[in-house]
């Protein structure tokens, strides 16, 4: 009896080792991928280090931080980052929901409509930005200016006058299909009998939506918010291709500000301090998000 239980604990131990061996690579790789660059960034943020002036890397305390945070672009960039993420999330979730409800109805050619609707998600961000910059928003030849001419209105110079809104439009166009994809699938798994029963009891469209559909979609919405936040906090390609952060700082986000500092001003120290700010911001957002959404995900 005793020896038998010994054997089984031995087997369990062996198993545990195998299991840990399987788990280890992903954990270790991600740990290295996180810690090595992170500690380098933190180190550079405390030294004087400009690629244009090679020399000893002197420890200068918090000077890089104060330089970066007193840059006149700092607060606009912080603000723009949050506005960008917030607006895109709101637009894509609302629009994605509306479209999902729409294509959940039966009508002719629904399959083709779905394919057309989700296509923007597969477009690469650089192409997305170029299409909108040139063929849609160009003040002379773009489609929007053609429409404005048709109605005899003065065309808007989107990227000059509404740079941040233009970028929000591009990103939302790309990510609404993502929300739609997920909501569409969840709606298909909604209990139709429950809905029909509610309809028989005289519940209207809105109360069904409010009390049956929305709770059913709580988790998918959490997923959409989570994944999109991850991608939009460090939005880069669209700004790189279209506005270059301008005019002024009107479309500069934190990612762009750091990029400008590092690769246009060659100031590694200051850029690293900016990197640390970006990481702190991401952590604050992540903290709230994971508390709000993460629980929902693991259960």
């Amino acid at each position: 009896m005793n020896s038998q239980s010994n054997i089984s604990t031995q087997v369990q131990h062996k198993w545990l080792n195998v299991v840990n061996l399987l788990k280890a690579p992903s954990i270790i790789l991600l740990l290295v991928w996180m810690i090595v660059p992170l500690s380098m960034t933190v180190y550079y943020s405390f030294v004087e280090y400009n690629l244009l002036y090679p020399g000893p890397k002197l420890f200068i305390g918090l000077e890089n931080y104060s330089y970066f945070s007193t840059d006149s672009a700092f607060f606009p960039a912080l603000f723009n980052t949050l506005v960008l993420v917030g607006s895109v999330l709101t637009i894509t979730v609302v629009l994605g929901l509306a479209l999902a409800l729409l294509v959940n109805q039966p009508f002719f050619g629904r399959g083709v409509v779905r394919v057309l609707l989700i296509s923007p998600f597969f477009i690469m961000p650089t192409v997305n930005a170029l299409i909108w910059k040139n063929m849609m928003m160009d003040p002379n030849y773009g489609i929007f200016s053609v429409i404005a001419d048709f109605f005899n209105v003065v065309p808007i110079n989107f990227l000059e006058d509404l740079p941040l809104a233009s970028i929000i439009l591009m990103v939302s166009w790309q990510w609404t299909p993502f929300a739609l994809l997920i909501f569409m699938t969840s709606l298909q798994s909604q209990d139709t009998e429950q809905k029909e029963a509610a309809q028989l009891d005289g519940a209207g469209f809105w109360s069904i939506f409010r009390f049956l559909t929305l709770p059913h979609l709580a988790r998918p919405i959490a997923i959409v918010v989570m994944i999109q936040t991850i991608f939009h906090l460090s939005l880069f390609a669209e700004i790189f291709v279209t506005t270059g952060g301008g005019p002024g700082f009107a479309s500069t986000n934190l990612a762009w500000l750091i990029y400008r500092q590092a690769f246009l001003a060659f100031d590694v120290g200051v850029a690293s301090a900016g990197g640390v700010f970006a990481i702190i911001l991401a952590n604050i957002v992540a903290f709230f998000l994971i508390r709000a959404v993460g629980k929902n995900l693991t259960e």
């Binding site: 992903s26 954990i27 991600l30 991928w33 996180m34 090595v36 660059p37 992170l38 380098m40 960034t41 550079y44 989570m226 936040t229 991850i230 906090l233 460090s234 880069f236 934190l254 990612a255 750091i258 990029y259 590092a262 590694v268 850029a271 690293s272 900016g274 990197g275 640390v276 970006a278 990481i279 991401a282 952590n283 957002v285 992540a286 998000l289 994971i290 993460g294 693991t298």
Partner: peptide, 25 residues
């Protein structure tokens, strides 16, 4: 579960924050 949540949180680290080290390596 904590490990999985931690993994997801590494995605929140903005790429630009570690651009310089990665570039240099």
């Amino acid at each position: 579960k904590d490990i999985l949540l931690w993994m997801l949180s590494t995605k929140m680290l903005p790429a630009v924050g570690v651009l310089i080290p990665i570039y240099m390596i």
